[in-house]
Design a protein around this nucleic acid. Structure first.
Lengths: 112, 112
DNA sequence: CGAATAGTTAAGCATCTACTTAAGTATTGC
DNA sequence: GCAATACTTAAGTAGATGCTTAACTATTCG
């Protein structure tokens, strides 16, 4: 198992490339083959496969090959750790506003 | 102004390094000088300054120099765009669970 | 079987990244 | 003024990254 920091390194590094983000956005809709994922990009097949490897090493996608087709899908909670890390880095001022908002909603649920 | 994709590139790239993430975590507590930020790391001052430049180029921190001291602080909503992008990439299955949870809370606020 | 399809492997290359050391420039305190 | 402090600038380097082309393997279809 990877340590937490290394895992965040890989997650954020994987997301730091627009091609890979576009692949993730596509995979939110449904799983896809490597060719389907390659189709929108003016890029060789090996390049696409290398991007997929980065996503897979980061635990963002999983894949399995059936026959000659590899199907790639988003891992459940793929981006949870990254999202949570970001969520934690809020200025105290913002956190206070968040708590205030949460409290208003809690106190008076029928008003929102 | 940068386009959205380029801005996400920089944000996620900035966060893909544990040294820079540690700096962000430190800055959540309060603004700090370059030397204060450098202190936890076994790294030369120029290396630290280069990391800060990456964070600043990504819009995650801002800084200004007064006298010989440069003070660095987290930008308000520094990570908002990155957090929102991640938030959007949820499998439909997870989104359904989220909506279910939200609905349960809305329907029955005193029960949680 | 033989051709088309889907992906894989290997090698090479320009550029970027995360450092380093060395030398410089403003401030500030004595 | 002069030394200490707090950066800053410049130049260099090993290794990672994002591609490429070429050649290969496995599977499916007619």
């Amino acid at each position: 198992m990877l340590n937490y920091s290394e895992s965040l390194d890989r997650t954020f590094h994987a997301l730091a490339d627009r091609t890979r983000r576009a692949m993730v956005e596509r995979l939110v809709r449904s799983p896809a083959s490597v060719s389907e994922l390659a189709e929108p990009f003016a890029m060789s097949m090996p390049a696409v496969v290398q991007h997929l490897k980065v996503l897979e090493d980061a635990g963002i996608v999983t894949s399995q090959k059936v026959g000659r087709v590899r199907t790639v899908q988003l891992a459940p909670d793929a981006l949870a750790a990254g999202g949570e890390w970001i969520g934690r880095q809020r200025l105290p001022a913002e956190q206070r506003l968040d708590r205030l908002a949460a409290q208003l909603i809690d106190d008076d649920p029928q008003e929102h």
